[in-house]
């Protein structure tokens, strides 16, 4: 049970749930949350490979660490833009943002 594939499946599940969330949440913040889930899926993958396969158990950890950093930066930018969207459109419903099309 506590094997590599379990973790990988878990990661895949998280990733897919994230995708699902990105698709169906209309709230931009909801989408952002879903994207965080996807990133975590990747993190779990790294950690799992790190634990079970990698020659050097440091690399995966460092990756995970950096993913967190990147995620933080991403969240900061995303949130600021979301706030700006809210100010412009009065909503954070992504379906309101349809001016650009065609």
């Amino acid at each position: 049970m506590n094997s590599l594939t379990t973790y990988l499946f878990l990661a895949a599940l998280l990733f897919s749930l994230g995708i699902f969330g990105v698709f169906q949440r209309r709230s931009l913040i909801g989408m952002l949350i879903a994207i965080e889930l996807m990133l975590n899926g990747a993190s779990i993958n790294f950690m799992a490979f790190n634990r079970f396969l990698a020659p050097d158990p440091i690399v995966g950890q460092i990756y995970t660490l950096f993913i967190m950093g990147i995620a933080a930066a991403e969240a900061a930018i995303a949130l600021s833009i979301i706030v700006a969207v809210f100010r412009r459109l009065g909503s954070i419903n992504i379906e309101r943002a349809q001016e650009l099309r065609g």
Partner: peptide, 10 residues
């Protein structure tokens, strides 16, 4: 899960 994967630090 990370703990289970051997990295409490992470």
């Amino acid at each position: 899960i990370f703990v289970y994967l051997g990295s409490p630090f992470i």
